[in-house]
Computed example of a mutant assay.
Amino acid sequence: MEPSSYTGPGIWIRITHRFGPRMMEWFSGAVTATFGVILLVGDNLFAQPSWAGFSAFFGGSQELFGVIMLGLGMLRLVALIINGAKKKVTPQIRQVAAFFGLAIWFGVVVGFYSSGVISTWAAIYPWLVVAELTNIHRAAHDQGETRNGRAD
């Protein structure tokens, strides 16, 4: 019976092999975590008019929102590392992560939109929603290949 993951340098080879096709998933995880860090170190962002929707939803707790975003971003990155190291792919993990990413970025769009302030958020965050839809589609495609025995 073959092991379910490689050991030693083989782990790095497997992760780097799968990194390219999943780059947008890595990007989304990194942006989510970084968004959380900015919320944790930013000076009273919730006091700004464009953050009014977030302040209302999180009860004025910018720190709570920051911890949630940082935690979810890190969780996604760890899941991608683990999934990338496994010999047999598990696209369901990626589908769930992308679904949460979709919910996160849709929520961010709604939060900024609800403020009534139009700024650069409108040029960035809606595209992250589209990216997560693409990530869901790609992971579902990989699941089909796994089911049919064509995935590595």
Rank of each mutant, 00 (worst) to 15 (best):
M1D: 03
S4L: 11
E2V: 12
F112Q: 10
L72E: 03
V41N: 02
L75R: 03
F19I: 01
A103I: 10
V31F: 15
S28G: 03
A47W: 09
L45I: 03
A140V: 00
P3A: 13
S61L: 11
Q62D: 03
A30L: 14
A122K: 12
G71Y: 07
L80Q: 14
A103P: 04
A131C: 10
P126N: 06
T134H: 02
R94T: 10
G60C: 01
F58S: 06
I136D: 00
A97N: 05
V130S: 01
A33G: 09
F58L: 10
L75H: 11
G53T: 10
G144D: 14
A47D: 09
F35S: 08
L77G: 15
I104E: 03
D142K: 07
H17R: 14
V89R: 15
L102M: 04
Q48K: 09
V129S: 02
F19H: 01
G116H: 04
A30D: 02
F27N: 11
G73H: 05
L72A: 11
V129P: 02
S119N: 07
W121G: 08
E63F: 02
S28Q: 04
H141M: 08
A30P: 06
V108D: 02
L70K: 03
T120H: 10
T120K: 09
K87F: 06
F46M: 04
P91M: 06
L72K: 05
V129I: 01
G36D: 00
V129L: 07
S115K: 08
L75Y: 15
L77Q: 12
Y125G: 00
G42I: 01
V31G: 13
H141T: 08
R76C: 13
V130G: 06
E145D: 13
D142F: 13
Q92S: 08
G66D: 00
N83K: 08
F99M: 08
W105D: 01
A97E: 03
G66W: 07
